[in-house]
Simulated scan of single mutants.
Amino acid sequence: MSQDQTHEYRGYRLVAKPAENGAKCWAWRDGVPVHKLTGCDVPDAIQMARKEIDSALGVAAREGEAGDKAYTRALEAILPELSTGQLKMLQAHYRAPEHIMTATELAKAAGYSNYSGANLQYGNLGKALHEHHPVDLPVRRNGTLIYTCALADSPDLAPTATEDDSHWRWRMLPSLAFALRALGLVEQ
């Protein structure tokens, strides 16, 4: 029998396990079970719990005027924590044609030796931003959120060259571009 899976999410501890006819996930807050959700499997139950928490917290949209202001506040809040490489990636991404870059191009802009460093740092940046401005994010098969999607989406919805992450094209979200301009981090 498989073990419980435990994840932290927006101040909640999610505990999921297989159950008869699917899986169950409990969302605990301050030692008290607040939500109990059912899914077809453990990752689905975790995703259902995240959606329930997001709904209870009033998770905002990524785009539009409200998204622009929220992204500006969130970016301003995390600005002191950004590494030089993360800031360089944001600025290069903004300056790229149509705000589109691959992970390899982002790595080069930040001075990382390969795309793995860029993926890690951009994902960490997306997670930090997401903690200040929660938005609906896609979930991997293993139940983890794809935090880079708090910063960008993919215009292709598929890798451009191979299944290799280095060739995935990321398009910066318009609300993030707005925030960079509003905070004077890029030239208009």
Rank of each mutant, 00 (worst) to 15 (best):
Thr102Asp: 03
Leu180Gln: 11
Gly85Asn: 02
Leu145Asp: 07
Ile146Asp: 10
Ala152Asn: 11
Arg140Glu: 14
Gly31Lys: 04
Ala70Gln: 05
Asp164His: 04
Gly143Phe: 08
Thr38Ile: 08
Glu105Ile: 12
Ala109Arg: 01
Arg95Ile: 04
Thr144Pro: 01
Glu20Cys: 09
Pro97Arg: 13
Ile78Arg: 06
Glu65Arg: 14
Val34Arg: 13
Asp153Ser: 06
Ala19Ser: 13
Leu145Arg: 07
Leu37Thr: 15
Pro159His: 09
Ser175Pro: 00
Trp26Gly: 07
Pro80Ser: 03
Leu137Cys: 07
Leu180Cys: 06
Asp156Met: 08
Leu14Phe: 04
Cys25Lys: 04
Gly184Tyr: 05
Ile146Ser: 11
His99Pro: 02
Gly58Trp: 09
Asp41His: 12
Ser55Gly: 15
Pro155Val: 10
His99Thr: 08
Tyr94Ile: 00
Thr102Phe: 02
Leu120His: 11
Met48Ala: 14
Arg73Ala: 11
Leu87Met: 15
Tyr147Asn: 04
Glu163Phe: 12
Glu65Thr: 11
Arg141Gln: 14
Ala92Gln: 00
Lys17Arg: 15
Gly11Lys: 05
Thr162Phe: 10
Asn119Asp: 09
Trp28His: 00
Ala103Met: 11
Gln47Pro: 06
Gln91Pro: 00
Thr102Gln: 10
Pro18Val: 05
Leu79Asn: 13
His132Val: 00
Arg50Trp: 10
Leu185Pro: 05
Glu131Val: 07
Ala107Cys: 02
Asn119Arg: 08
Thr72Phe: 04
Gly39Gln: 03
His93Lys: 02
Ala179Pro: 03
Trp26Leu: 09
Glu52Gly: 00
Gly85Phe: 00
Ser175Glu: 01
Glu65Trp: 05
Asp68Leu: 04
Pro97Val: 06
Thr160Asp: 11
Thr144His: 12
Pro174Ile: 04
Tyr115Gly: 05
Glu76Cys: 11
Arg95Ala: 15
Ala16Tyr: 06
Leu37Cys: 10
Gly143Cys: 07
Ala56Ile: 06
Val135His: 06
Gln121Gly: 05
Ser166Asn: 07
Thr72Ala: 13
Tyr9Gly: 01
Asp44Trp: 10
Gly64Arg: 09
Tyr122Thr: 12
His167Gln: 08
Ser116Cys: 15
Arg140Asp: 09
Thr6Phe: 04
Gly31Met: 10
Ile46His: 07
Tyr9Met: 05
Ala77Tyr: 10
Ser116Asp: 13
Arg171Ala: 06
Pro97Asp: 08
Arg62Cys: 05
Thr162Met: 03
Arg50Gly: 11
Ala70Phe: 02
Val139His: 13
Ala77Trp: 06
Ala182Asn: 08
Gln5Asn: 12
Val135Cys: 07
Ala92Thr: 03
Gly117Pro: 01
Pro138Ala: 14
Ala128Met: 11
Ala96Ile: 06
Pro134Thr: 13
Ala16Gly: 07
Asp153Tyr: 13
Val186Ser: 03
Tyr12Leu: 00
Ala19Lys: 15
Tyr12Glu: 04
Met172Ala: 05
Lys36Cys: 12
Ala118Arg: 01
Gly117Glu: 03
Lys127Ile: 04
Ala110Gln: 00
Gly39Asp: 02
Leu145Thr: 11
Met101Ala: 06
Ile46Ala: 07
His133Trp: 03
Tyr9Thr: 01
Cys40Tyr: 15
Ala61Val: 11
His132Asp: 03
Gly126Arg: 04
Ala60Phe: 08
Lys88Glu: 02
Ala19Gln: 14
Ile53Val: 15
Leu125Arg: 07
